[in-house]
């Protein structure tokens, strides 16, 4: 192993980490407000196809990101209407959203399959920082979306922990009736959180299609949306811990194709199981801990709320 391979690996660790982090951050926001959205996979796919369409039309990755965010946000709005406003079951609605999003993206994207790549997210003009040995390529030569992801992670933490909006959102996710009694509109909060979650999943899909897969194919998401769902649990619903998890799980994704060059005699397919296996392990540990203190999971997750008179 030489410096080049290691640097190459770490560049990919960050790239895959960013991919997973954006989607997981979106899911985290929705879950913090008490809405489980199992439609991440579908929202990422819609974001991906929207970004590719935009790339073909306008060529600008920034426009692509915005279009992807809007498209996936609109898709998330379906879940918000069905599961939040109408109060139908969140699990079923979310899974249907995945099926719908995968189907719709395939339908809309059929003409884009195996087209050549469109313009990628570029790097920031950081000048000589990019030339630095090792940390230059790993940190400063990354596409600007990586910086955006970091900034969004910090912003999410700040809003959740340090603002009135975040306090209200967390309250809605812990106990909707209490939040309602304190004057926080449960419906508005949850709809907004689900839509924000969709926008972030759309960003993730755009980054996947433009920079990582470098093109659109049906099924391009390949289960990454489920890793994002797992990451939120691994990160114990905290943006910071989720970022560490994103780097870890992203690291596993980056490691997969390289194992053989590193001379490790383990099938990359088996390594690719690890994120899910680790998540099951973490969940078991949380469950054991929650015998002595409240669980890290938002208490009202999965529960619809309707204000009713006696």
């Amino acid at each position: 192993m030489n410096e080049v391979t290691i640097v190459g690996l770490l560049v990919d660790v960050i790239a895959f980490g960013v991919l997973l982090y954006l989607a997981a951050l979106g899911e985290l926001v929705a879950e913090k407000a008490g809405v489980l959205n199992l439609g991440v996979e579908g929202m990422m796919a819609i974001g991906g196809v929207a970004a590719f369409w935009s790339g073909v039309q306008f060529g600008s990755p920034l426009v692509g990101l915005i279009v992807a965010g809007i498209a996936a946000g609109l898709l998330a709005l379906v879940h918000a209407l069905v599961a939040v406003v109408l109060g139908a079951d969140q699990v079923v609605s979310g899974l249907a959203l995945t099926i719908f999003g995968l189907g719709l993206s395939a339908f809309l994207g059929k003409e884009y399959v195996s087209l050549p790549p469109v313009e990628q997210f570029g790097t920031l003009p950081l000048g000589s920082l990019r030339e630095l040995r090792i940390i230059g390529p790993i940190l400063f030569d990354q596409p600007w979306v990586a910086w955006l992801a970091a900034a969004l992670g910090f912003l999410t933490w700040f809003v959740l922990e340090r603002t009135r909006v975040g306090l209200g959102l967390r309250a809605v996710g812990e106990n909707a009736a209490t939040a309602d009694a304190a004057g926080q509109s449960v419906t508005v909060t949850r709809v907004a959180a689900v839509v924000v979650g969709g926008v972030l999943a759309g960003f993730s899909g755009a980054f996947l299609v433009l920079n990582l897969a470098k093109g659109w194919t049906e099924g391009v998401t390949a289960g990454r949306g489920w890793i994002a769902v797992a990451l939120v649990i691994f990160g114990a619903w905290r943006p910071g811990r989720t970022a560490i998890g994103a780097l870890l799980f992203g690291g596993l994704l980056a490691l997969e194709p390289r194992l053989q060059t590193f001379g490790v005699e383990v099938s990359p397919i088996l390594v690719s199981m690890l994120p899910y296996a680790i998540t099951i392990g973490v969940l078991v540990v949380f469950s054991i801990q929650s015998r002595h203190r409240p669980s890290a999971a938002p208490a009202a997750i999965g529960r619809a709320y309707r204000r009713e008179e006696r």
């Binding site: 340090r162 909006v165 975040g166 306090l167 309250a171 939040a179 304190a182 004057g183 926080q184």
Partner: peptide, 8 residues
């Protein structure tokens, strides 16, 4: 909760 300034 519900009665705080914007920044906590």
């Amino acid at each position: 909760l519900g009665a705080s300034p914007m920044m906590l």
